[in-house]
Design a protein around this nucleic acid. Structure first.
Lengths: 296, 296
DNA sequence: GTCAATTACGATTATCGTAACAATG
DNA sequence: CATTGTTACGATAATCGTAATTGAC
């Protein structure tokens, strides 16, 4: 097996590439400028090729490639340490739960309530995040449990942006149909069902945190299209409802999330479901195990 | 970010864990016994917990966890180096292709023939492997191209055992129906179609290299069952045919592979296809790019 | 000329090998 | 007592910081 390259150098390299400066990277990592320079030189010598351009600092072709691998590599390295520390640490009286905005949190909330009766001293925190951040936080001990959502064909597990994390365990929580939400007077509002592919050229609301992201629709319909007509950054369902009602564009939601003020038409063909999954580290803390029991 | 643990130590740790001996690991890695002992001690001190038991040498709970992560981590580290070396190396006059036994190689073979006319000096090698080994070889420059197969729902990409490799690019090559092969006189031989779930308790042939692996059927039907009645290790279709004809058990094959001597019944419900995909590094060598052009 | 990266160099630290030691079966 | 892992210790090499130097705008 080849001699592995030094993760210290890799970390320094990512810092330089990210900040675009040797000095800034040095400050960030607590080195001197000189040390950073030497580390980069050592990495370039080790790999036998230039990785960065100087003045201005930027990544070469090879550097770009290396960067693609270095980040997940370092993340996983940190995750391993975290997992092992969690193994020996006293079972913390903490349960940190992450939720994605559209996840169906009903069953989990109920189970959490029961758990708190059993273990009143447990410090429970709940926060909303996005799926990628939640999975990273699971790996680095920021979260103990993540309730994530997405769309998938009826029997498929969710495809989440796992980057290069250690694998997590998944538990399906709920499935529900997807609907297209429209202004009440919209010509399509009275259709019994709609095909996703036929809607590729409609006016779409780009609301990745408040509705199913357009990228997911593109992937499901296997087309380009679904171009954003107006972007909404935020998670507020009322804001989304107002934007749709005002005709700024369409959105796809799990049926549970469709506001009564809007028309909602089921999306059939391809047959897609909105799924909510509970993800946790493969070797979860005791509180997580107990919570999973309570979910049944 | 945490200080990453040293891959040298990780590599030494995996060697000790694998060989079950400090001395054997030392010999394998070209160290002295003493150095290995010091490296393990350093790793244990770094992580703050024992990783190995001594006399006999074995992994502790924490060591087992670490091992699960260390192997993919080291593999990926090696893969990065390979990818970068490939980037600057002179375009090699080599094209190494890996095939899984059931992959549909017709189109690829034809394209390869055309390529060899264009580039007679190109050294082409073809070998059969399994999917996991092929993907690992793509990462470490053992292969330039892998033709892999598997079963999946109609529009799904294949789910391959990627371990923790850098991602590869995929190109769908062919799809075909799956059939159940039976002895000609079998009671089920004249059915128009069969449901997979109804067959979970039949007598199955466990022939992971010559037919669809039973594990894949279990995953597709989402049941236990499909217990092996007789195991065949090998890739020879004639041997498989003989075993099925003699009534040793059933097998599922892509339709193209079903021998005329056997009865073949389509498998419907769930709707599954046998897919063949071409996988290559995301930044392939020139010969690979040309071959992909010739495939269209 | 100024700002930023590189190089020179000495001090500190890390890591290896040799060899003595300890423990286990 | 033989085998195998650990510890002690000295030699070597790696890596950092200070400070001088080079190079680009």
């Amino acid at each position: 097996m080849l001699i592995p390259m030094d993760p210290h150098l890799l970390r320094t390299f990512t810092a330089v590439a990210r900040t675009g400066s040797f000095s800034a990277a040095a400050q960030e990592l607590g080195y001197t400028q000189s040390a950073v320079s030497q580390q980069i030189a050592a990495l370039e010598a080790d790999l036998g090729m230039p990785l960065l351009t100087r003045r201005p600092v930027g990544t070469t072709e090879a550097g770009t490639r290396l960067l693609e691998h270095a980040e997940p590599l370092l993340l996983r390295l940190a995750a391993v340490r975290t997992e092992l520390r969690r193994l020996v640490a006293a079972p913390s009286a903490r349960l940190a739960v992450g939720l994605t905005p559209l996840a169906d949190s009903g069953a989990l909330a109920a189970a959490l309530a029961r758990l708190r009766v059993e273990q009143p001293l447990l410090r429970v925190t709940v926060e909303t995040t996005d799926a990628a951040a939640a999975l990273a936080a699971l790996a680095t001990d920021g979260l103990d449990l993540a309730l994530v959502d997405g769309i998938a064909a009826p029997t498929d597990p969710l495809r989440l942006p796992e980057a290069d994390q250690p694998p997590t365990a998944a538990l399906a929580v709920s499935e529900e149909p997807l609907v297209l939400v429209l202004p009440p007077g919209h010509p399509l509002a009275h259709r019994a069902a709609l095909r996703l592919a036929d809607l590729a050229d409609a006016r779409w609301l780009d609301a990745p945190e408040a509705a199913v992201p357009l990228a997911a629709l593109r992937a499901a319909a296997r087309t380009d299209g679904f171009h954003p007509h107006l972007a909404y950054r935020g998670t507020d369902p009322h804001a989304l409802t107002a934007l749709v009602a005002a005709g700024h564009g369409l959105a796809v939601l799990p049926r549970r999330c469709a506001a009564p003020a809007l028309a909602a038409v089921p999306v059939g063909e391809p047959r897609l479901l909105h799924r909510t999954e509970l993800r946790h580290p493969r070797h979860p803390a005791a509180a997580v195990t107990r919570l999973l029991d309570l979910l049944d």
